[in-house]
C-alpha cells in the first residue's frame, strides 16, 4: 500500500545541503498498523509530507496505492486521509458542519455515502454537541476528533497520522486510540502513525519503524524491538541516543 524505495529529500540551507530523509526504503502492506518513531528532527514529518504529495522527493521513489504522490497528487489525495496533530486541516472560521460540507465537495463524495459516514463518525466520536461551533472555538480534544472525522469522510484506504495525540488529556487519548483501533480492524484501513507517546505504540502498533537522521534504524515487530526487555521507554531511549553519537 505504501512503498518507499531509496527515497530521499534534501534541502538547501544557506549553501549547505541538509538531507532530511536519506535513502529510505520500506513497505507497508494493506491493513497494517505501523508506528513510526524517531526523535525530533529525525525526518518523520518529511516522510509523511512525501507520502501526501506535499513535498517532492529529491531522490528515489515513493508510491502510495501504486501511484507517485507528487505526480498524481490529486488522485492520491482521494485515497489517503491525513491528520496533523500540531495543526488543523479544518477551516478556522467555519463551523465544523460547514467544514465537513466543504470536504464533501472537495473530495466529490456521494451525498448519500457522505450522510451515512458522517452520521456514524459523529456518533462514535461524539461530535453532535459542537457541530455548529466554529473550529477556532473548539478545545484541542474536540478539534482532533473533528480532524479525524474530516480525514475519514472520503473513506481513504490509507490513514496517515502525524502526532494525533499530542497535547490531549488521558481520556481524550484513550478514546482516540480506541477509535483508531476500530477503524483499522473493521474497515481494514492501513494506518501509519507518528508519535512521541509510547503508550500509543504499545496500545496500537504491531509493527514499529524507528528513523533517525533521515535513515531507518529499526524496522520490525514491537516484540522484536522489545527483545525481552520490559520497558519500551528504555529501549527507545537507547536507540535515540545511539543515533546521536
Amino acid at each position: 500500500m505504501i512503498e518507499l524505495d531509496r527515497a530521499g529529500r534534501s534541502f538547501k540551507v544557506k549553501r549547505n545541503v541538509v538531507h532530511a530523509v536519506h535513502d529510505l526504503s520500506f513497505t507497508v502492506a494493506p491493513g497494517e498498523f505501523v508506528g513510526y518513531l524517531g526523535p525530533n528532527g529525525a525526518g518523520k514529518s518529511t516522510t509523511i509530507k512525501m507520502l501526501c504529495g506535499i513535498l517532492t522527493p529529491t531522490s528515489g521513489t515513493v508510491r502510495v496505492a501504486g501511484l507517485d504522490p507528487s505526480r498524481k497528487r490529486t488522485v492520491v489525495a482521494r485515497r489517503i486521509g491525513v491528520v496533523f496533530g500540531q495543526r488543523t486541516t479544518l477551516w478556522w472560521d467555519l463551523p465544523l458542519k460547514d467544514s465537513f460540507e466543504l470536504i464533501r465537495l472537495l473530495y466529490k463524495v456521494d451525498r448519500k455515502d457522505f450522510r451515512v459516514r458522517l452520521d456514524e463518525l459523529v456518533e462514535t466520536l461524539d461530535l453532535s454537541t459542537f457541530m455548529k461551533t466554529p473550529v477556532r472555538q473548539l478545545s484541542l480534544g474536540q478539534r482532533m476528533r473533528g480532524d479525524l472525522t474530516a480525514a475519514l469522510l472520503h473513506a481513504p484506504e490509507v490513514l496517515v497520522l502525524d502526532e494525533p495525540t499530542i497535547g490531549l488529556d488521558v481520556v481524550s487519548k484513550n478514546s482516540i486510540r480506541a477509535f483508531l483501533q476500530r477503524v483499522n480492524a473493521e474497515r481494514g484501513t492501513t494506518v501509519l502513525l507518528t508519535t512521541h507517546d509510547l503508550g500509543d505504540i504499545e496500545r496500537l502498533c504491531k509493527r514499529v519503524m524507528v528513523i533517525d537522521h533521515g535513515r531507518m534504524q529499526f524496522d520490525g515487530t514491537l516484540d522484536e524491538l522489545m527483545a525481552g526487555e520490559s520497558s519500551l521507554e528504555e529501549v527507545v531511549t537507547r536507540l535515540y541516543t545511539a543515533g546521536a553519537q
Binding site: 506535499i54 490529486t74 488522485v75 491525513v82 488543523t88 472537495l106 473530495y107
Partner: peptide
C-alpha cells in the same frame, strides 16, 4: 502552514 492542508486535498 495552511498551504500544506491545501496540498492534501484532491483539488
Amino acid at each position: 502552514g495552511t498551504f500544506d492542508t491545501m496540498l492534501i486535498r484532491p483539488v
